[in-house]
Design a protein around this nucleic acid. Structure first.
Lengths: 226, 226
DNA sequence: CTGTATCCGTGTTGATACTG
DNA sequence: CAGTATCAACACGGATACAG
């Protein structure tokens, strides 16, 4: 009987020199790529990861974190006192997986089966800015916009057509947008004017309103196929 | 008891509006992305797919083909008589997954665990040209090179920094390179001069030798991390 | 709160054998 | 060659219980 080769942990491998096959060895297990997605904007704690990955169970999350750490994609970090909590972060190579996540998202969103009403993590929302910005609309526009999503704070900075996004604070943003994740979906991807979301109280706008409105109009959900 | 939602076929979904999650619903199942890879250079028959996917079993291949067809990624086509055989092809949207495969490969090949001695399908070799061409080396170079890999024929055409690759024939290529897949790996990615592979009889060169040598030097395996 | 270690029901996977 | 049927192994998710 021919035995299939498995990894040290007993998982299945493809045994193929092709980079795509090796890539699927790493990210093809259930939850692995989404876990990496949740870390692309900065380190997260165990509980934060669980919140961003609805449906994952604690034991599976632990297994994935262990496996990705062994692969050199994730690293455990201990925050300095007094926080002194453990967080999980992507290694530099793990961070380089961002183009994979963005390309996969751009492609899949053209599926006729895409359902925008499904839940959407905060990281997904902020990552979608980089995934779905329309380059031509961004030409010649420079702006720093702070997003306050519930308790979490993110920053998006557009400079010379290059959009950077990270979790954290920023001094003197041009505008601040505050609201829950779901409130941003119609504004960024459904053609709803920012003023409407503001009038209904779902998004609060501070700072330069013109910048806020232009910024929120930079993005487009790709057309569906068929 | 809370029931988890599943697809029509009973498979697990992520139920996440994020494009990356939807993408993993489609390509995250074992073998799915590699199957798509095998179709990126043109339609293939059932048996050709099995050859390019060492280790897949017939029933799983059937399941994946059925699933990808239902998702609108793969299409069954019947060749016109006298061939009259059935082949599987990517739909236009399925073809758009190429950037995902290329990005995944570029990222994963930087893994310290990448093993170049593993098997490598013909499609993988030809796709690696698009995956790993160094743009700067291609500047100002125009060439059409035919690859004869065993029984199969591929064409790579470089024009204005843009490399196209497809399975098929071409009239009057600048050069023809003939050999087995394994013979090309050291030449394209191991720094072996084409002349050496030729001297050992592993690759036969016809046509413009200078074009052949410059062309084979356009590619580079990314540096490994750590 | 942050995990780890169980057990268990279920579905997915893949090897083998088999049919058209 | 193309695909189906069967069956065994195991990965997954849920539900605990439990440790630091």
């Amino acid at each position: 009987m021919k035995l299939e080769k498995v990894t040290e942990n007993g998982r299945r491998r493809y045994d193929d020199a092709c980079g795509a096959a090796l890539g699927m060895d790493y990210v093809g297990e259930r939850w692995a790529l989404l876990l990496m997605r949740e870390l692309l904007l900065g380190p997260r704690r165990f509980g934060e990861l669980r919140s961003g990955l609805p449906g994952i169970s604690a034991n599976v999350l632990t297994q994935r974190l262990t496996g990705l750490e062994a692969a050199g994609i994730v690293r455990r970090e201990r925050l300095p006192p007094p926080a002194s909590a453990q967080v999980y972060a992507l290694t530099p190579w793990g961070m380089e997986s961002e183009p994979v996540v963005l390309a996969l998202g751009r492609w899949a969103l053209r599926s006729p089966a895409h359902d925008t009403s499904l839940p959407f993590s905060r990281v997904s929302l902020m990552l979608s800015l980089r995934m779905l910005m329309v380059q031509e609309r961004a030409a010649g526009f420079t702006a720093t916009v702070a997003f306050h999503l519930g308790e979490e704070r993110y920053v998006a900075r557009l400079t010379a057509g290059d959009l950077r996004v990270w979790r954290g604070e920023v001094d003197a943003p041009d505008a601040i947008l505050a609201g829950e994740t779901a409130a941003f979906k119609p504004v960024l991807y459904g053609g709803m004017p920012l003023a409407v979301a503001e009038a209904t109280g779902r998004i609060a706008v501070a700072g330069n309103r013109a910048v806020a409105e232009r910024f929120t109009g930079l993005f487009r959900l790709p057309d569906k196929v068929e």
